[in-house]
Write a protein that binds this DNA or RNA. Sequence first.
DNA 1: AGTTGGTGTCAAATATATTTAACATGAAGT
DNA 2: ACTTCATGTTAAATATATTTGACACCAACT
Lengths: 68, 68
Amino acid sequence: MSKQIDNHIRRLRFEHQEMTQQALADQVGVSRQTIVAIEKNKYSPSLEVAFKIADTFALSIEKVFEYK
Amino acid sequence: MSKQIDNHIRRLRFEHQEMTQQALADQVGVSRQTIVAIEKNKYSPSLEVAFKIADTFALSIEKVFEYK
DNA sequence: AGTTGGTGTCAAATATATTTAACATGAAGT
DNA sequence: ACTTCATGTTAAATATATTTGACACCAACT
C-alpha cells in the first residue's frame, strides 16, 4: 500500500553528456557517495537535494523522482 | 545566489476544508510538530514527506514547495 | 604490466529531520 | 469563569541523511 520513491538519475546523467557521478555531485553540492546512495535507492534525499538534482537536469522533481 | 524553499501549506490547508495541522499530520503520517516546523520553514522536509504532503493536496511538489 | 577514471561499498563521524512530551497563547463556545 | 481546540514553542531523544576517508573492481588506455 505504501508508495515508494524511484529515480531516473542514472539515465539522466547519461542523457546529459555522460555526466559522471562526481560531476553531478559537484553541481549539486554533495559528495559523490550521496549521489551513489540516492541513485541506488539506499535512501531518499532531502527535498533540497532533490530540487538541486532536478535543477541540474532542468526538470521537475516528478520527472527525476517517481512516487508510486 | 543560493535558492531557497518556501511552501504554501498553510494556504492549502485552508483551501482543503480548513484542514488542521493535526489532520494533515495524520494523513501524512508525521507528528503535528513536524507540520508546524515545515510550514514555518524551520527546516525543509525529506523528499518522502514532501511527496506525501503534495499527495494529500493532490498537487505536484512544485505546487506545494517553491524552490527559487 | 602498470595506470587512470568511473563506479560500488564500508565504517565512523557529523548534520539534519522527526518524535515525544510538555507547556503557553488566543479564539470560540458554555 | 471555565473548557475546548488550533496553534506555536521548547528541550531531549531517536532516526535518517550526508560527509570523509579508505579500499576494491573493472574497463580502457599506454
